[in-house]
Design a protein around this nucleic acid. Structure first.
Length: 648
DNA sequence: GTAGGGTTAG
């Protein structure tokens, strides 16, 4: 049965909207209960602010009296979490909607990505019984953020009363679309600016890489807009310099902002450095690894906020100075989740899983990043069992894995060569994550490492989003390692046709494919093409394959010359390839050279001895063969499994 | 309880 005010979700929406009244709370409650209602509302909004939406909802459900503010608070909680369906449900259920309720639900739709939601939000805006400035600005900024500048501008021009907020949203919109000139022109023509206008402009310019334009405007306006608080804008520009490693530029700007530690107002400009200025400058130093300068700033600050401590800690974590990092962690007054996460990731980077786990278990509150850090830590340190254990524990505790979690767990499957588990995780990926190239890439690697080249191929073919170099490398590498040289070369051709630039890793796979398939001329040609067409410097891995290729063809001298002339030290793969070729072509002379080199690199390995022994035996030189065996015994080298004295 | 801008992170 329809209530007095109707339900917006069903029936003729326009008729129902006309019945909706705007009220401000209930008037029929006593003074006492209205006071407690006010208290409850406050509690709910506090819970929501602290991200405890579930508890807020439980409280909401248990309340006997609710007013419009109660409903609105709850809706805002869902809007914040982008749970638009839940928000809409409440909106439809609430007995009385005021203009805030409408603004909330419209903003909810616009902050969900996707044109379906944007259009729905607009539809609701058109249905609103009345609109205020906030309503208009919500929609303008909503359109701007979703790349629909034409509609944003249409509304901007149509709105009855503009304010600075509307204009600031337009600036942000232009810059999100990369329209730098339009943004600057619009900004200069604005009848009124506030500090947020500057922040929006500078932030957008920095995002578009126009740091010089931003610096110029700040300089110009310092005079023009005297008294304006430009510290936010300066901080943003500083951070922009830092992101690009331009520490000197950042420092110059930092030094230009009047020092907040100086007492007495010598400077005419009102704004001063704030904590964020110090933090940003510190971050610049941390980014380039200048920990000494960062620490100097840290010690010179008048007040530290949590971010200052965390930035400093992350600096020490970056240079693996865990003593100093944990010292700061102990000293800081109130570590937050990020501080804990930083310490944990620091310990895992240093291979200290026990300490990391220790901290992880002592955390007062974990978030998704905590779990991801710990799982990735286990994976990187090849403690696969630990990683899997945590993965199931996190799900038991109700934390939903995201793409970072799944990517770590896929790597675990790769490390364990566990196809069964890998397929399960793949199902989970399909269910829970949007298309993502890094995930697809690691799936390809996982499948091919597990020997399931057909599955790898399926993932590769079904990629809808975008195949990057890593995708191609993974697939080519998969084919190469399974001996499918023709397929590897085929998709390599396709990749080049699509103008994807190969990397040195691509050529490692290509050359090894050629070597294993005995494609001598192809291999030579690819090696040359790598250098001449793609300007990629050969590495030792490439040379190893080329030696292999040449050796198989019997060009042992050419292979030896290549080894002698290459600009880096040959490794065991290079000598191993040569030795194998010598064995194939019965060249004892070079075999001795290769074997000796291998023995020098790996004195405890039996493989070179065994190969030499077999060669002599094959040639009937039993005395020499016996010498090798005796030598092995003298050096106490045990034959490893997998090698046979009796060659086929 | 609703609209625009800034620093930290796996």
């Amino acid at each position: 049965m329809a209530t007095l005010y109707g339900r917006v979700s069903s029936g003729n929406i326009v008729q129902q909207v006309s019945r909706i009244r705007c009220c401000h709370g209930s008037t029929s409650v006593t003074r006492n209960s209205s006071r407690s209602l006010h208290q409850s509302n406050k509690k709910i909004s506090n819970l929501i602010r602290n991200g405890r939406l579930r508890e807020a909802r439980a409280m909401f459900d248990s309340m006997r009296h609710r007013d419009t503010v109660t409903w609105n608070s709850m809706i805002s909680g869902y809007v914040h979490r982008r749970e638009i369906a839940q928000a809409r449900k409440l909106f439809d259920q609430m007995p009385q909607r005021d203009i805030v309720s409408w603004n909330l639900i419209v903003s909810g739709y616009f902050s969900c990505r996707g044109s379906r939601f944007v259009d729905e939000g607009r539809e609701l805006f058109d249905l609103m019984p009345q609109r205020d400035c906030v309503s208009w600005n919500t929609v303008i900024s909503g359109y701007a953020k979703n790349g629909r500048m034409d509609q944003a501008l249409k509304l901007f021009n149509a709105m009855p009363e503009r304010n600075v907020v509307s204009s600031n949203a337009v600036i942000t919109g232009f810059l999100l679309n990369g329209d730098v000139d339009a943004a600057v022109d619009f900004f200069k023509a604005m009848p009124e600016r506030d500090s947020a206008s500057f922040s929006a402009l500078v932030a957008g310019l920095v995002r578009n890489g126009k740091l010089d334009i931003a610096a110029g405007i700040l300089r110009e306006c310092e005079i023009e807009d005297e008294g304006m608080d430009l510290v936010h804008a300066c901080n943003t520009l500083m951070a922009g310099y830092g992101q690009r490693g331009q520490v000197e530029e950042a420092r110059r700007l930092f030094d230009e902002i009047p020092d907040n530690r100086v007492v007495g107002d010598e400077d005419k400009r009102r704004f001063r450095r704030n904590v964020v200025s110090w933090n940003s400058m510190m971050m610049c130093y941390v980014k380039v690894g200048d920990i000494v300068s960062a620490r100097e700033l840290f010690d010179g600050m008048v007040e530290h906020d949590t971010c200052s401590w965390n930035t400093m800690i992350s600096g020490y974590v970056q240079i693996s100075n865990m003593d100093e990092a944990s010292k700061l962690f102990r000293e800081m007054p109130s570590p937050d989740v990020l501080s804990w996460n930083l310490i944990i990731s620091g310990f895992t980077q240093n291979g200290n899983l026990n300490l990391a786990k220790d901290f992880f278990e002592r955390m007062p509150y974990k978030n998704l990043i905590s779990w991801n850090t710990m799982i990735a830590g286990y994976e990187k340190n090849e403690n696969y069992k630990g990683a899997i254990g945590l993965f199931s524990q996190m799900q038991l505790e109700g934390e939903r894995p995201d793409k970072h979690t799944l990517s770590s767990v896929i790597s675990v499957c790769t490390g364990l060569v566990d196809l069964y588990l890998g397929k399960q995780i793949h199902q989970l990926v399909i269910k829970s994550v949007l298309p993502d190239s890094p995930i697809d890439n690691s799936l390809i690697t996982m499948y091919s490492r597990c020997g399931a080249i057909a599955d790898a191929c399926n993932v590769f073919n079904e990629i809808k989003l975008y195949k990057d170099v890593i995708t191609w490398n993974a697939m080519i590498g998969g084919y190469a390692s399974h001996g499918f040289a023709a397929e590897a070369l085929e998709i390599f051709k396709l990749m080049k046709r699509l103008k994807i630039h190969p990397t040195y890793i691509t050529f490692i796979s290509i050359l090894s494919a050629c070597a294993h398939a005995g494609l001598v001329e192809e291999g030579r040609a690819q090696f040359k093409s790598m250098i001449n067409d793609y300007g990629i410097e050969p590495r030792v891995e490439h040379v190893a394959s080329l030696v292999d290729i040449l050796g198989r063809q019997g060009e042992l001298q050419e292979a030896m010359d290549l080894i002698n002339t290459m600009p880096f030290k040959p490794d065991k793969a290079v000598w191993g390839a040569l030795l194998g070729a010598c064995r194939m072509h019965n060249n004892v002379e070079l075999a001795i050279v290769a074997a000796e080199a291998l023995i020098k690199l790996e004195p405890e390995s039996s493989a070179p001895y065994v190969l030499l022994y077999n060669m002599y035996a094959n040639l009937g030189q039993w005395d020499d063969a016996e010498n090798v065996r005796v030598l092995m015994e003298e050096k106490n080298i045990k034959k490893q499994t997998g090698y046979s004295w009796v060659d086929s």
